[in-house]
Design a protein around this nucleic acid. Structure first.
Lengths: 168, 168
DNA sequence: TTAAACTTTCAAAAATTATTGAAAGTTTAT
DNA sequence: ATAAACTTTCAATAATTTTTGAAAGTTTAA
């Protein structure tokens, strides 16, 4: 496979994966583009390569910065802003995990906590079933939270070393 | 908090979580409803409780069956179909992991594999950067795949016991 | 059969989400 | 100050996803 074709395929695949994971396609594609680019790129270059509008490019870049996946770079003597992506895949994974934990897991844990204070008749099957589901989900969510917490602090080699050794 | 209010809140929260994870809101809500229901419910009851149309209810229930999250039940002497959800949260997590692995991770692994066959000039920064990103992502994806594979086979207590012990 | 009870389909409509692009805003150099 | 270079905003539009509901399909009982 040729490099040019491979790049397109990678951008497409990353975009699809993103959209399956609640990250919009364009955002994932811009990220993909910067990820495989050895040099920081300008808004202009990104707009052209991906055929997207200026407004879209601007908002997407802003979101990616918000996710901690890319950064702005200023070149001496130039007005333009350049953007580049962190190339360390483990950092990327951590960053995504961190953001999703904050945006999604934590609110859910909060609600589950509230819900576990529900009162009712212990003999009522409706009550018992509700309570059990909420409690069980809460336990699972707490375990997931703890695991993510560890991952956020861990070095990649240590993390996979440990996990895969256990699962041998 | 009252049981009735808590149920609504749970259905809402589960629906929101679902939509953040690429599962549509209605599907997640129907799942939530069945999860906290001690009895199997009919399409009619689900339609009413969640104020959704017959067509929507039917398709959603079919999808949930496809995900392995709910099952049909037939009651003796009745024409109607009843639906109930597996209440074991670990099974649910495994089932979701299994489906997403199949639908999302495996296609990505396939593409990454293809992309790692790309040819080019080892001195070209474009090529080097591309190759490194693809290779690194591939390694990460393989580790995720292995971990999921283990999870799919594991008992809940063993799984968390091992993972959390490592992360102590 | 036939008709009632129930399920499925799917084209059209509604709702949601993403994108555009032109105008407004900002910064820098002169 | 002014103008050029660049960035941001946001109302309008487009694209995508979800939902509806009525019609078609299926199963069962008599």
């Amino acid at each position: 496979m040729e490099l040019a074709a491979a790049k397109l395929k990678f951008i497409e695949a990353w975009g699809k994966l993103g959209s399956e994971w609640g990250i919009n396609r364009t955002m994932a594609q811009v990220h993909a583009l910067l990820l495989i680019s050895p040099e920081a790129l300008t808004t202009e270059e990104i707009m052209e390569t991906l055929s997207i509008s200026r407004g879209n490019a601007n908002m997407t870049l802003r979101d990616l910065i918000g996710w901690g996946l890319i950064e702005k770079q200023h070149k001496a003597g130039e007005r333009k802003e350049y953007f580049f992506a962190d190339k360390d895949v483990w950092n990327i994974a951590r960053q995504v995990a961190k953001e999703r934990k904050k945006r999604e897991l934590e609110p859910v844990l909060k609600v589950l906590n509230e819900l576990s204070t529900v009162t009712g008749d212990e003999k009522d099957p409706e009550f018992k079933t509700f309570k059990k589901s909420v409690t069980d989900i809460n336990k699972l969510a707490i375990n997931v939270d703890k695991t993510l917490e560890t991952m956020l602090k861990a070095e990649e080699s240590w993390f996979w070393g440990s996990v895969l050794k256990v699962f041998k």
